[in-house]
């Protein structure tokens, strides 16, 4: 299990970790980071560090997640006392608290109206705009959420986080074209993000998987982006997993196409060269050996290889086993 750390919370927080995180509340709330002395002395004897406020914020979020609203409120009051009620970030945290404590959709609508009011006063409050999208999503109004998000993106087109959210929202509606467009915008802002490359490759693969006839161009695009992901990160488990997965599909398709002597480059709008079968085979070999190496090192518990998620390792192992069976 990933250990619970409030300063830099893990990238995945399953319920047990969330519980462990919020159980730290009494300890952290028992001492105040700010000094209670009058003004000039409080500057000298304050024990606060930038980390204490990150910890408070994370504690607030995990307390809300586990339903510990009393601790969440205490933490929020501390943050408000320190940074003022009108700080953008604090206003957002207050909004999250209201969302969490809302009973039913009617209450949530009220929180939403509150956000509208804040935005009428200050339309540039980006985090409140993001909260609006989150509330719409929570209410199940995905298409409204998409509209709100596109409005946000029109005003702030360099927000990679918002583009990523838009990509996922479109993907959840199975609108692959739009999802890919948004993911490409993410790449324009963060061209070296290996996870963004893996994401766009997944989208390309899914867009071809949902069609009845597998689309060679989509698979080639997917292959290209998975290759870039592992080029940017030479131990990227998800990248190698995807590379192996896509190459095995492409392999089957290409050998089928060559046996029926079908011309590969018949697509007229085709600006993506479909790779040759030799290249695909070589890539598959590379991905297999890399995946096997990662799985082996993780299983042997070698120091310096324990950063992977266990579920991902298990999935990679299954993929390798399936492949080995097919060969036999």
């Amino acid at each position: 299990m990933t250990h619970a750390n409030l300063l830099s919370p893990p990238s995945q927080i399953p319920p047990p970790t969330a519980l462990a995180l919020s159980q730290k509340a009494p300890l952290i709330l028992s001492t105040s980071p700010t000094s209670s002395l009058p003004w000039p002395l409080s500057l000298l004897f304050s024990r606060e560090t930038p980390e204490s406020w990150t910890i408070h914020e994370n504690l607030f979020l995990s307390a809300l997640r586990t339903g510990d609203e009393a601790s969440a409120l205490t933490t929020l009051e501390r943050l408000e006392a320190r940074f003022g009620e009108h700080n953008e970030r604090i206003v957002t945290l207050r909004g999250i608290y209201n969302e969490a404590t809302a009973q039913g959709n009617a209450d949530l609508e009220k929180v939403f109206d509150g956000y509208e009011k804040i935005l009428r006063e200050d339309a540039t409050n980006m985090s409140i705009r993001k909260r609006r999208v989150a509330v719409l999503k929570a209410l199940g109004r995905t298409s409204d959420a998409v509209t709100a998000l596109t409005a946000l993106l029109t005003n702030s087109p360099t927000d990679a986080e918002a583009w990523a959210e838009a990509s996922e929202l479109y993907a959840s509606l199975a609108a692959w074209g739009q999802a890919i467009y948004c993911a490409e915008e993410v790449l324009l802002i963060t061209p070296n993000a290996w996870s963004a490359h893996a994401h766009i490759a997944t989208l390309h693969y899914l867009s071809s998987a949902t069609n009845n006839t597998p689309n060679l161009v989509s698979l080639a695009m997917s292959l290209k982006h998975f290759c870039r992901a592992v080029e940017l990160n030479d131990s990227y488990l998800r990248g190698y997993y995807g590379l192996k997965f896509v190459t095995s599909k492409l392999n089957a398709l290409l050998s089928e196409a060559s046996s029926t002597s079908l011309k590969r480059n018949t697509q007229d709008d085709d600006d993506v060269p479909v790779p040759s079968i030799e290249t695909v085979k070589k890539l598959e070999e590379l991905a297999t050996s890399k995946l096997a190496g990662i799985v082996r090192q993780f299983k042997s518990g070698k120091k310096g290889w324990m950063g992977y998620d266990e579920a991902e390792i298990i999935a990679a192992r299954e993929l390798l086993d399936r492949d080995a069976k097919a060969v036999r």
Partner: peptide, 30 residues
């Protein structure tokens, strides 16, 4: 690049994208 929240796959449960944190969904999960 954890802030992009793209590492959990499509529909993943990662903790990235803090601005869009789905408090209701996480509470339900818990």
């Amino acid at each position: 690049y954890a802030f992009l929240g793209l590492d959990g796959g499509i529909g993943g449960k990662g903790e990235g994208r803090r601005g869009f944190w789905d408090v209701k969904g996480k509470r339900r999960e818990y």
